[in-house]
């Protein structure tokens, strides 16, 4: 059974020309720790809001645990922590949990034990009766997560849960997520912190322009091309050299910029073997050469481009 399955999701915000989601497809297995990456405006938050039944798609559909998404399904199965700290500042941590527990069937009595346990887990037991307005950013984030976990959901949807969090709070949040995941829970996690996603998520989807560009395990996303070779020369690289090199290294991705060359390949030795005679032929001197292991960030930039996304 899939925890989440999005098929052909299309959505435009009213009054806006740009399409927020274009035929988006994504499948999250039950028990997965799924990361969603994408630059600003990629459609991550729109997708999450759709998964939480906060938005209805113009086209396509989305299912949670084989049930079409609706408020009823979401309220039972999903724990949602929005990007903003969605807490009442004038209430204490305990009162916040009490309030959200009261809204659930069964009321406070059913969640009393869980409330204490969660406060313990997120490290807020000592300040349970302190007002949230007196909390640091990290404490608020931890409580934000605790509220999402209160009713022991099957799917936890987190939108940028680490924004403005200190390393100690981050560790505590990660520990909570690992515990939840360890107990069979499914996590859908969006973040700008690529290193963090790379570290904690089992599967990752990279989104841009409202589409899923790539999805799978880290190894699947990175592909075979694990080396990024950077070379710099004393003169501008001629187009003919580039053409010759591309014809000799069929499986490599080659990009040039004036005097520098970037080659992404799974066979680093073959580059030198081909490049050295060619540089001699074109009277170029190789000044620098480095072989770097590719990171998720390299792959992310390769897929989404280097242009700024301020809009």
């Amino acid at each position: 059974m899939k925890a989440l399955e999005a098929i052909g999701l299309t959505y435009s915000y009213p009054g806006q020309k740009d399409i927020a989601l274009k035929e988006l497809e994504l499948s999250v297995a039950q028990g997965a720790f799924q990361g969603i990456l994408g630059p600003n405006g990629a459609g991550k938050t729109t997708f999450i809001r759709m998964a939480c039944s906060l938005l209805q798609p113009n086209k396509g559909h989305i299912q949670l645990f084989d049930k079409d998404v609706c408020r009823n399904v979401v309220s039972q199965l999903v724990g949602y922590a929005p990007q903003e700290i969605a807490l009442y500042n004038h209430l204490s941590a305990w009162e916040n949990l009490q309030f959200f527990a009261r809204l659930r069937p069964g009321g406070i009595s059913q969640f009393q034990e869980n409330m204490s346990l969660l406060l313990e887990k997120v490290g807020l037991s000592d300040v349970a009766h302190k007002r949230v307005s007196a909390f640091s950013g990290g404490m608020k984030r931890r409580l934000n997560l605790a509220v999402a976990l209160l009713h022991s959901p099957r799917l936890l949807i987190l939108d940028e849960p680490m924004t403005g969090v200190d390393p100690q709070s981050r560790n505590r949040i990660l520990q909570c997520l690992k515990d939840f995941h360890g107990n069979g829970g499914t996590i859908l996690y969006t973040s700008h912190y690529l290193h963090e996603v790379e570290k904690i998520c089992e599967t990752i989807a990279i989104m841009d322009h409202g589409k899923t560009l790539v999805s799978g395990t880290l190894a699947e996303i990175m592909g075979k091309k694990k080396h990024q070779l950077n070379c710099s020369f004393d003169k501008r690289i001629e187009d003919n050299l580039l053409k010759d090199l591309k014809s000799r290294l069929n499986h490599a991705t080659i990009k040039s910029n004036e005097k520098s060359l970037t080659v992404i390949t799974d066979e680093p030795d073959s580059l030198l073997k081909e490049l050295l005679p060619l540089s001699h032929q074109y009277q170029l001197t190789l000044l620098n050469y480095s072989d770097n292991a590719r990171t998720l960030e390299d792959r992310f930039l390769e897929l989404t481009g280097h242009s700024l996304r301020d809009g």
Binding site: C52, S75, V78, Y80, A81, Q83, A86, R104, V147
Partner: peptide, 14 residues
């Protein structure tokens, strides 16, 4: 509304 509290409440049976 601004703090997404209403958004969060929408995932509750209310």
């Amino acid at each position: 509304r601004k703090n997404s509290l209403l958004q969060r409440l929408r995932t509750y049976p209310i």
